[in-house]
Each structure stands twice: as structure tokens, then as C-alpha cells.
Design a protein around this nucleic acid. Sequence first.
DNA 1: TCGATACCCAAGCAAGTGCTTGGTAGGCTA
DNA 2: TAGCCTACCAAGCACTTGCTTGGGTATCGA
Lengths: 193, 193
Amino acid sequence: MTATQTRRDELLQIAAELFATKGFKNTTVRDIADAAGILSGSLYHHFDSKESMIDEILSSFQEELFGAYAGILAGSDDPRAKLEAAVRVSFEAIDHHRNEVAIFQNEADYLGTFDRFSYLEERNQQSRDVWLTLLREGVSSGALRKDLDVELVYRFIRDTVWVAVRWYRPGGKLSHHDVADQYLTILLDGITA
Amino acid sequence: MTATQTRRDELLQIAAELFATKGFKNTTVRDIADAAGILSGSLYHHFDSKESMIDEILSSFQEELFGAYAGILAGSDDPRAKLEAAVRVSFEAIDHHRNEVAIFQNEADYLGTFDRFSYLEERNQQSRDVWLTLLREGVSSGALRKDLDVELVYRFIRDTVWVAVRWYRPGGKLSHHDVADQYLTILLDGITA
DNA sequence: TCGATACCCAAGCAAGTGCTTGGTAGGCTA
DNA sequence: TAGCCTACCAAGCACTTGCTTGGGTATCGA
């Protein structure tokens, strides 16, 4: 039982690595099987389809991430601290779940066109709600400038944070804490002297 | 002759639209031919291969873009104005060449692994040089904060600017001038009150 | 009028795609 | 020890992929 779970998870990790690096469509079931040291047909003992693999990878990651966001929103921090916390949680996700973040960034648009992955679009809306709430609270509390186009700032933050998955590498000279610090400095105070 | 060029360009535009939307690997030559109203085999009257199509799309775009960067670097504006100009030129490229920018963003990593597309990596280095030069000039002139990690700021700017191609739509309520203005405000002065 | 050229179709090939089938080997449990 | 479980293999099927081959037709300058 535990062995089953272990092997499944192992295969999912291998698949996630390949999906993140080469893209979903560009990764064949033979690629995954080769990396796992088995034949392609054997994958179908564990999974229904290649689609169900990426489904499982994405949905379980999303669940964890949005749990973290919900915790921040429900907390009692002041608006600015909440915004900072949301940014830090996101960079932490990039650190802990590189492949999952990369897959979501690269494939969400394409996968979203299928019924099976309609939850991706829902999650997108949910994420938008989280950030807009944080930003509006920030503005109305006086922590953020009144003249902000919160919709635009939301997109700015969302894209800037998640796109870091393209270059951030765990174990590099900058930890995800460092990156979050630097990012928040730029976002909150700008780069001018 | 002009007719040849026209038809070729037409087909390249159609291909670029599909590559940008569905991805290179995920777009078949039959997709392209269908969208053009011809059969897939007929494409090979105009092009050697599917690869050569994306090659032509990317290389001609890059040439134009880096010409613009070179002009800014060679100009006599002060450092801050140069930085702003580079940002504006980039958003203009997103407006004028949506598909090309999207393709480069999505496929550069994958394509870069092939010899034929090694120029993509060179362009990446070239772009890095441009932005780092602008940022260092900004710091040493006193326009930008001395404590900036210019390498990190470079990545932030690069990603922030180009990732806008994911949501920006020409003809929307915000022009590319508007978006550039807003981005520069955030980048230079931050979002705090 | 005639050839050159641009443009396209119909048919199909070789390689690769996701997935299925029938089977084996070893371990756990009643 | 019978019955069932997990985990895998070997072979192959139906289909899609990029690309090729051998034509055809419309246009236009000489």
C-alpha cells in the first residue's frame, strides 16, 4: 500500500520534471517510462492516461497553494503584511514545487481549453480574487498609493512573481527568502534613488 | 515576385498566430495549411520545413528589436531616459509583434537546444548586456539606488516586460503607451503611499 | 503562342504517438 | 496453498506526425 503510493509518486515526480522541462505535449510516455527505467505500457498500470498524470500533478499542487493563500487572507495581519506574506508564500512555492509551477505557467492556457482542466481557469479567478482583495485592502488602509490601477498591479505582481520560476534555482546563491526580499523592495519602493 | 513575398508573409503570419497560441510542437503543418485554406503539402512549395518557418519568424523579429535597442544605447539621453526608452520600445514590440514575442517567450528554451537556433541564446546574452549597461549607468549616475542587485533587477525587468504579452491585447482599453507608463511608475517609484 | 513561373492538389510514406492486450514473477494474506 | 495483489514486460494497434512525389492550372512577359 505504502509501496504503491511511493512508486506512483515517484513516477509522478519523474513525469513532472519532464513536463516542466520539455513541455507536456513534447514529452512522450516513452520518455517518462525511459526515465523511470520501465516500458511505456507499464505506466498504464499506475495511470489511466498521460493526461491524468498532469492532472494529478497540477490539482494537488493547486490545492496546497490555495490553502496557504486562504490562511493569509483569514489572518489578522495588517494589509501590507498580508501582501508581503502572499508574495513570500509564492516564492516559497517556486522553491518547493518548481516543476509544478513551471507546468502551470506553461501549460495552463492550452490545457484550460479542455473540460477536464476547467478547474485551472477557476483557480485563476480565485487567485485574482486573492490578490485584488489584498491590494484593495492595502489601498483603503492607506498603505498603498490611491492612484494605483489595482487590476494592472495585480497582473504585474502575478506575472513577475511566477515568471521567476524560469531562472530561480533552489540551492543557488540566492534563497527564496532573499529573492522575495529583493522583489518586495522593488515592488513597494521602486528602484530610483 | 511581390506576389511571392506577399503569399509567403501571409503564410508566415498564419503560422506565427498558431505557434503563439498553441505552441510550436503542438501546431501541425496541417493546422497551418487548414488556416491558410490549402493542403499541407502545398506549404512545402514555400518553405523547407516547419522549423524554417519559426526560424524565419523569430530571426527577423529579433533583428528589428535589437536594432531599436542599439539606437537607444547609442543615443545621447541621460541614463534614466534611456532606461525608460528601452522599456517603451519593448512594450511597443509587444503591441506590434504579439505573436513573435509570445513565440520567443514560450519556445526559446526548447529551441535553443538545437544548433540551428543557437542565435537565440546569443540574443539573450545581447539583451542581458543591454539592460545591465542601462542599469549600471543608472546607478553610477545617481539616478538609481546604489544598493540594487542589478543582475536581479535585470531579470525582474526583463520578465515583467515580456510576460505582459500574456494578457496585453492591442485595441484594448489600455494602449501600449499606457501600460508602459504604469509599469515605469511601479518600477521606478514602487506602489507604497 | 509559348515557355517560365508561382501556386496548389492528391496520394502516400516512414517514423513516432498514446494506449491496449495478454501474460509473468513475486509477495501477502486467509 | 489458493487466491489475490502489485509491478512489470513484449508486442502491437490505430492513428498522427512532418515531409515527399508527381502531377496540374493560372498568369504573364516575350
